[in-house]
Structures are given as C-alpha cells and as structure tokens.
Amino acid sequence: MIKVNDLKFTYPGNDQLTLTGLSFEVEEGEVFGFLGPSGAGKSTTQKILIGILKNFQGDVSVNNQNLKSLNSDFYEHIGVAFETPNLYSKFTALENLNFFSNFYAGTTRDPRELLAAVGLEQDGNTRVSDFSKGMKVRLNFCRSLLHDPRLIFLDEPTAGLDPVNLRKMESLILAEKARGKTVCITTHDMHVADTLCDRVAFIVDGHVSLIDAPRELKLQHGERNLEVEYREGEALKKDAFSMDEVGGDARFQEILRQHYIETIHSREASLEDVFVKTTGRNLA
C-alpha cells in the first residue's frame, strides 16, 4: 500500500535534513503507527505521503502511485484527518460534511451515519464554532471517512478526547481495519499505538530506528519474569520469579497456597520502555 525507500527531505532555509533516509513499507489492511517525539519527522513524513510536501528525495509510492507524478484521482482514495481540526466554523457539522462529500466522484457515506458512529448524532445542526475540541476531533475523523477511502491517515486521532470517546475512537479505527482499510496513525501516545497498531515505526531525528509489532517489541525488550504481590499478615510483599521455571518453583507454589494474592503480572516491557531503551529518547 505504501513503499518508501531512502526518503530524504529538507525544509527550505534549513541546512540539516529533516528526514535523513527513511525506508519502510505499509501492507494493505494493516494499522501502522509512526511514533516519535515532537520534531522527530513524523508529521513531515505524513505530509509527504499525502502529497503536501513535494521536493523530497527518494522513492515514495502510495496506493500504487509514485508521488513524484501524482494523478488527479489520488485523493479519491485517501482520507486524511489532521491533528488540528479543519472545518468551517460558521457552518454546522452536517453542512461541513455535505460540502466535503461533494468533491468526490464515487459513492460517499451518509454523513448522519458517520456522526452517529462518533456520538455526534444530536449535533449535526450545531455550528462547529460551538463544538468542543473533542467534538471537532470526532467530526474531523468523520470528514476523513466520507468517501470511504482505502487508505486513511490520522494525525494524533485521540488528542483531546475524554476516556469514553477515546475508546469509541479506538473501536472505530479498528472497525475500519476490519473493513479492509489501511490506516496510518501518527502519534506520540504509546497507549494508542499499543492498542491499535499492527506495527509501529519509531522515528527519531528524521530516521526510522525500529519497526515491529508492539507485542513483539514488548516481549523482546521485557524480562521473562512474573511478579507477585501478596499479603503476609498485614504486610504487602512482592516477589519475582523466572517464567521459565515458575512451574516447579517451590517458593512460588508456597505463596500461591499460603498467602492472599493481590496481583500477578508478567514483566514484559511497555512500549514506552522499548522506545526509551532503543532510541535513548523520551516521547514528550
């Protein structure tokens, strides 16, 4: 779906490369995440992939089109939701969606159904200027899906959402994946990447330092230990055991038999741990 080979880019007036040679591929039907701290090159990469930034070096093809020679129907098949909601504030949600859907040649989805899917069914006739940040984010997401694109780019899709709408947004993104869509997410939210992405690319200082599935990364970089918290009288105690030997570990068996267990966790790394360990950088 997306093939990028040795992508380099410099903003005019800058001496240093913003992207220093990115290479990666995104398969059809997967949710792919770009993770990295602010200024790492995530948004620049996305702007190149959606055809906004032109003067790059390297080979980039999106949806089987070489980005150096885009034809006019490129945007018929990709949907983009930018981090900053971009809608006419003096127009209602439905007016905005109807306006944008008229630009597409193919069949478009019913704006009312999309609004209902993100919990805005009662707000279709409300002006966008009266929307909260979270409502605008959800409306922006609807706009990106209007023409039922095969490839969807989402920049920080959960920014500004409360926990209930965060879950709703996550399930909607997974629903698009279930419909066979390819989704590219740019985020610095590890929870979003961990929950949604089939694979993630860590981008730091303009290059991809690592690409893999979140689960694999967490297992590879974690400890094969089991941590148990239990009560011994009034005291809260904690012990760790090797997962390879836990079945025959007498102390572990004894704790299970004789004490009140409060928690048992495997000690795989969090995605954030992996990021810090492999890049030497924090995500903030």
């Binding site: 959606i50 055809g51 906004i52 006019s72 129907d73 945007y75 018929e76 990709i78 983009v80 930018f82 900053t84 909601p85 971009n86 809608l87 006419y88 944008f100 630009f103 597409y104 040649a105 706009r143």
Partner: peptide, 10 residues
C-alpha cells in the same frame, strides 16, 4: 486550517 483539508480532496 481549511485550505489544507481542501487540498487533500480531489
């Protein structure tokens, strides 16, 4: 930010 959303349409 309307111009950027217009230019990712056809």
């Amino acid at each position: 930010n309307i111009t950027e959303s217009l230019f990712v349409t056809p």
